[in-house]
Design a binder for these strands. Structure first.
Length: 582
DNA sequence: GCCGTTTTCGGCCCGACTGTTTTCAGTCG
């Protein structure tokens, strides 16, 4: 059982306990554990198999350790089975409706015997929901609307799509009356692979006109709520946007607060309390002891900038990509925050396609585009023959491509064009190109495009076999996932990463917005194990070369510095490092 | 249920908005 599955089980326990009305702190304990497990880079099943003491991990106490071991060893969790028999699982879906939380879900269940969305819809249509205590006509109406459009509203957006909406929003809001500063916060700023909503933060003398300007944006489909400090709208695209207006003296505190993550903020506030301070979106305040021992807020000691807020609790500024409570506060405390890799550090792109296979641009166009981006080298990685539908290159065609590479190279002496190929890993783990040709390539990139649904054992063996081939340099988009479209392959990633390290093979951080493969958690694990990483765009056009920033963003979320990323090296050292096998 | 130079009990982050209420609970981020 993989970490994400363990986390899902713990989250479901939390959901069901919450509907039961359990102690909220107990519920939180399950959620904290689930969140930790989901983001933890080492598979817990391995630690369990080794008999390690899981209670040494944060958020895991005696009970959680027992449950995790049970899940790893049996695939089941008795506590969860029991809860499912006590609480109808359909209620969980009901709590996911906006405006319906555990309390109302429980009322619907106990008072009206409602256990799923369809029953709720019927009850609401019949007007029985509005009659419940704590509900009313408006709530009933909202519930109905939420059920009707449920499919559209749950989705998360690819980071690249969110970027487009964010840019348009920024342009509109920059023209709002009296707007001074304007920043996008939230998971967008932390560069998460998908974004659920956008948080826009502005400073303005008067909030009213700014809120009005915001709700008049043509892309707005519905104003969800509107106040003097916060307004929420839903766009025609389905994206929800929150606008907050704050005073300049609180801008940094608000930016921290709305950037999150929630867990990072909680740790920051706890840290503040330990120092006799209180952090809110309005600033960092002294806490004074009142007459009766109660604590009241004193003067504001920080708030205008993020740097100030962190400094107030004795920390350096922490890059947004790290704010996930994955050890960044501790690292900041020790003065060991990583100097994260930046787009400008990248010296070459190592996966791209041309018209020789399924790319849209010619080789010469791709070379000129790479040069324009300041790269010192690039790898031309058209597909191998078995991917017929992409126009994969057979040996004869490959040799003709080499001739063209040599011709084009003569015209572009400032960039090194590396002969390469994205070679398909066949079902049995063998490679879709003869050894004799592999030997003539500068860079050998391998990846899987077929039989994605094999079981974990077989799929893992297949990849390991490919990595053991002495000519292989890079494993591209290792899990094959496509966000929102295709689940990752069943793959024992820890085995794969260990094997990659053993054989000196680099793993790719594919920058395609719907791939981002490996993801941040796997890249973090690669870094821990000392596996080499390359960041590549997998470009199919010159424009795609600009996707590099999405790969870099995920690498940053994985704490990678330039020294972890091979394609930050100059050409000579890059090739040396790439070919160093162990 | 977790956690501890405020340790084995008693805490556990903070504020805005809405709707249903007559002073606040529920939900959300």
């Amino acid at each position: 059982m993989e970490n994400v599955e363990l986390a899902a089980a713990l989250d479901e326990v939390a959901d069901l306990l919450e509907i039961q009305g359990a102690n909220p702190f107990r519920v939180r304990a399950y959620r904290n554990a689930a969140r930790f497990v989901r983001g933890y880079s080492t598979p817990l099943r391995k630690l369990v198999a080794e008999g390690r003491d899981l209670t040494e991990l944060p958020t895991i106490g005696a009970d959680m350790a027992k449950y995790l071991a049970e899940l790893c060893q049996t695939g089941k969790l008795a506590v969860l089975e029991q809860l499912r028999s006590q609480v109808p699982p359909g209620l969980v879906e009901i709590t996911q409706l906006p405006g319906v939380g555990p309390k109302r879900a429980q009322a619907l269940w106990k008072e009206l015997q409602i256990t799923d969305l369809e029953q709720l819809r019927q009850a609401a249509l019949a007007g029985r929901v509005a009659a419940l205590r704590g509900f009313g006509d408006k709530t009933q109406q909202k519930i109905l609307q939420a059920i009707e459009r449920r499919a559209g509203q749950q989705k998360r957006f690819l980071l690249a799509d969110a970027d487009q909406i964010a840019a348009a929003l920024r342009e509109h809001m920059a023209q709002a009356p009296g707007v001074d500063r304007l920043e996008m916060a939230g998971s967008w700023r932390r560069r998460k692979e998908t974004v659920g909503d956008l948080d826009l933060l502005v400073t303005a003398a008067e909030p009213g006109p700014v809120m009005d300007h915001f709700t008049r944006w043509p892309s707005v489909a519905e104003v969800v709520q509107k106040g003097t400090t916060r307004t929420t709208v839903r766009l025609r695209s389905g994206m929800q946007v929150d606008l907050r207006v704050v005073e300049p003296a609180a801008f940094g505190a608000a930016l921290c607060y709305f950037t999150g993550s929630k867990e990072h903020n909680i740790r920051m506030r706890q840290r503040a309390l330990e120092r006799g301070l209180r952090i809110s979106e309005y600033g960092v305040f002294e806490l004074l002891e009142g007459e009766g021992g109660e604590r009241r807020e004193g003067r504001r000691v920080a708030g205008a900038t993020e740097q100030e807020v962190y400094a107030a609790v004795g920390l350096p500024w922490i890059p947004p990509e790290l704010r996930e409570d994955r050890g960044e506060l501790e690292a900041a405390e020790r003065g060991e925050l990583p100097a994260l890799v930046e787009l400008g550090d990248i010296r070459g792109d190592l996966q791209m396609h041309t018209r020789w296979s399924d790319g849209k641009n010619t080789l010469a166009e791709m070379v000129a585009a790479c040069l324009a981006r300041g790269y010192a080298y690039m790898a031309v990685t058209d597909h191998s023959p078995s991917l017929a539908m992409t126009g994969g290159l057979d040996p004869a065609k490959l040799r003709r491509q080499w001739q063209e590479i040599e011709r084009v190279a003569a015209d572009y002496p400032k960039i090194r064009i590396l002969k390469s190929m994205e070679i398909d890993i066949r079902r049995d783990g063998s490679l879709d190109l003869a050894d004799e040709l592999l030997e003539q390539l500068d860079v050998v990139l391998v990846s899987i495009h077929s039989y994605l649904e094999l079981g974990m054992a077989e799929q893992t063996r297949r990849v390991l076999k490919a990595l053991e081939h002495p000519r292989v340099h890079i494993l591209a988009h290792p899990t094959g996932r496509r966000l929102g479209q295709r689940e990752p392959m069943q793959l024992d990633m820890d085995e794969v990463l260990h094997c990659a390290r053993e054989h000196g093979v680099a793993v790719e951080a594919n920058a395609q917005p719907e791939r981002l493969d490996l993801n941040d958690v796997h890249l973090f694990r690669a870094r821990e194990l000392g596996v080499k990483v390359v960041i590549s765009t997998d470009a199919h056009s010159t424009a795609d070369l600009d996707l590099m920033r999405y790969g870099v963003a995920q690498a940053r979320r994985a704490w990678l510095t330039p020294k972890h990323v091979l394609n930050t090296l100059p050409p000579g050292r890059f090739l040396q490092a790439l070919r160093r096998r162990r």
